[in-house]
Amino acid sequence: MTDQDGRIVVSGLAKTFGTVKAVDGLTFTVEPGSITGFLGPNGAGKTTTLRMLLGLVRPDAGTATIGGRAYTDLPAPSDRVGAVLEATAFHPARTGRAHLRIYSTINGYPGTRADEVLELVGLSGAGRRAVRGYSLGMRQRLALATALLGDPKVLVLDEPANGLDPEGIAWMRRLLRDLAAQGRAVLVSSHVLSEVQQLVDHVVIINRGRCVRQGPLTALADLHGPVVSVRTPDPDRLQTALIRIGVDEDRITRTGDQLRVTGIQADDVGQLAFAEQIPVLWLAAEQSDLEQVFFALTTDNGQQPALTATTGA
């Protein structure tokens, strides 16, 4: 398999349900060998996009390919692409193992494969129980096990962390990291950036069926610039001083004796306070608040021209 096999290209994809434009001319690319977060608020069109990518929903316009081919044209698609689209899609009376054996049979995998993937997702002990007795977290694991049956090079996961407890989310992150380290392309959707922030290298952010941003996660952080928090007994003077050196007023948030300033380095705030002889009790450079960037990108009111531009594909 070449790298080309894992590249996902979505081009001009559109889908309308009734009067609702679920996906509206969506274009993005996912490079192989990386974990890409597919982000957007609920109703942004993530699930519809993934279902069009996987040949389950017929697009009104545009194309979606994996390794240059539509999913429905892939020979033995389960060998190449594993997908988790919903965690509740099981016959309740079947055991987890029976579910996996059914899809092993259909795809022509050996009967032992079901037990292997059960082990891989930590469900060995529950394999012979009916799925109706599974927790949501166990169903997520079983859905992932189903996707892994064919040992695919590409994984497409729709909100895989839904219903998982913090331990489960940590487990899922570790597993996805391991899977990506083996050279797989992983496309994972979420409506909460923080859920996948520590996992993904790249992001594709969509809102109202359109791509508002795609690129490396680090570039997303740079959009917002640095953030500094400072505590001082005289916040009024510091605020005035900051505005005087050119910091926009709306980039300063004040809580009690603490100021939070975006778009400025901690060094500069420290120098300024020293020059103005304002005592500083505490000064810290914050990690960029990606959640706020995400929020700005996906809130229509908060749209700023600089943030809505899509980086070159």
Partner: peptide
């Protein structure tokens, strides 16, 4: 119809897109 009721149609049609 169980495939639609229990939503296994998704898994089934992923394994066999035709």
């Amino acid at each position: 119809t169980a495939e639609y009721r229990h939503r296994t149609a998704t898994t089934t049609f992923l394994a066999t897109p035709h």
